[in-house]
Computed example of a mutant assay.
Amino acid sequence: MSDAITMVEAVNLALRSEMQRDDSVIVLGEDVGVNGGVFRATVGLRETFGIKRVLDTPLAETMIAGLSVGMAAQGLKPVAEIQFMGFIFPTMEQIICHAARLRHRTRGRLHCPMVLRVPFGGGIHAPEHHSESTEALFAHIPGLRVVIPSSPKRAYGLLLAAIRNPDPVIFMEPKRIYRLNAQTVEDNGEALPLDSCYTLREGADITLVSWGAMIKETLEAADLLAQQGVSCEVIDVVTLNPIDHETILASVAKTGRCVIIHEAPKSCAVGAEISATLGERGLLSLQAPVARVTGYDTIMPYYRMENHYLPNTADIVEAVTATLEFS
């Protein structure tokens, strides 16, 4: 495909590509068929693949998750959409108690190759329950993969990998950057590796670790700091469970300093796990305490206060400056 496409279009392209390649892939969720999804990620799929492979469901997240587990256990590859992260809580019993445990419970006799797609995060002036960033809830669960793309190319390749994975994947799509920029994405059916960090920018002075929509501000901060002579290495974590700690540790061994940036609240977040691992396994490399730039430990506010809640480029620059000045 030669034209540049946005992330949401890359999600659609990946779904279309894999549905053409594999008849066992089924798309289901609220409004995914006739309306093409609330963000139009599934637009046109029902017309191409029919009502037996693109299923409009009732407004019943528990049912969507439970139906997906059943499909996956019987040889299908369901890709279910939960409209917003704030609606995911009814799925948790099915996802945690059944999807994540199925292979272990059956001693490998059954697998659960399902994907739960979830638009998440703030920045689009959504109402309550629509802007949560609760990735840590699922990253805590053994047996689940949690994957977050940050660009159209990665959304395409990672979604293909998630669908082909024999175990359940929570595929979280940062909706703030659904249409932020476009990239040329070749529809070649090539999946990107899961469980790996991506080094987006090489640097020597400090390591910036982030994922999802916050990669945008992280790269902006790296550009501003470069003008001040600061060389930042930028790492996109991508898979939050399991985390590729080796890439992060190797980077910090080179730079000696680290700032972790994420939109979710600070307490008990994935950033805390990365920081703890750096303390346990990379302490002798660190020349300063690990800093975190995060959302607040509060409910995500309505749109008037949304920009105050979300970390911004200036916050990251300030944290980097303070970390570099530590001695």
Rank of each mutant, 00 (worst) to 15 (best):
C232A: 13
V146A: 04
Q94H: 14
E30L: 06
L116S: 12
T184K: 15
A72M: 07
P166M: 03
T277L: 13
V147H: 00
D31M: 04
I274D: 00
E93S: 13
W211N: 10
N35Y: 15
T57C: 00
G212Y: 02
P152A: 11
I235M: 02
R154L: 09
M63V: 12
Q83R: 13
G121R: 01
T134Y: 09
T134M: 10
E246I: 10
F84E: 04
P265K: 01
E173I: 02
R53I: 04
L225P: 05
E233M: 09
E233V: 00
E132D: 10
F39Q: 03
D23F: 07
G282C: 03
T218P: 02
C112Y: 07
R103H: 12
G256H: 02
R53H: 11
G37A: 07
V293Q: 00
G66F: 06
I274Y: 00
V118R: 11
E128V: 11
E220W: 09
I96W: 04
G37K: 07
A253K: 12
L240E: 03
V230I: 13
C197K: 01
L224K: 10
A161S: 13
I51Q: 15
T218R: 07
S285D: 09
S196V: 13
I170L: 14
E280Q: 07
L110F: 14
R281M: 11
L286N: 04
R105Q: 13
F84G: 05
S24H: 12
G29E: 03
A272G: 07
I177T: 01
T106F: 05
S231I: 06
K266Q: 09
T184E: 14
V293E: 00
M214F: 12
M63W: 09
S151I: 13
V79D: 12
V43Y: 10
T247F: 00
A319Q: 00
L158K: 06
Q227L: 14
I299S: 14
D23K: 14
L160R: 01
D22I: 06
G36H: 08
G212C: 04
I163Y: 02
D31S: 08
F89C: 10
A14T: 07
G70H: 05
V118L: 09
G44E: 10
E306K: 12
F89K: 03
S231Y: 09
K216T: 15
L137F: 15
E30Y: 02
L137R: 03
F39N: 08
N312T: 04
E190A: 11
P58C: 06
V259M: 05
R304F: 14
V290D: 02
E135D: 12
G108F: 11
A182I: 06
G271F: 05
H98N: 15
C112T: 08
I5F: 06
R281H: 11
I248N: 02
D167E: 15
M7V: 08
M7E: 05
G295N: 02
L240M: 06
I82M: 14
R46G: 09
I5P: 03
Q83Y: 04
L310I: 15
Y302S: 11
G229P: 04
I248D: 03
K153R: 15
V27P: 10
D167P: 00
T62I: 10
I170G: 06
L158C: 05
V115G: 03
F87H: 06
H140A: 11
I124A: 05
V79G: 04
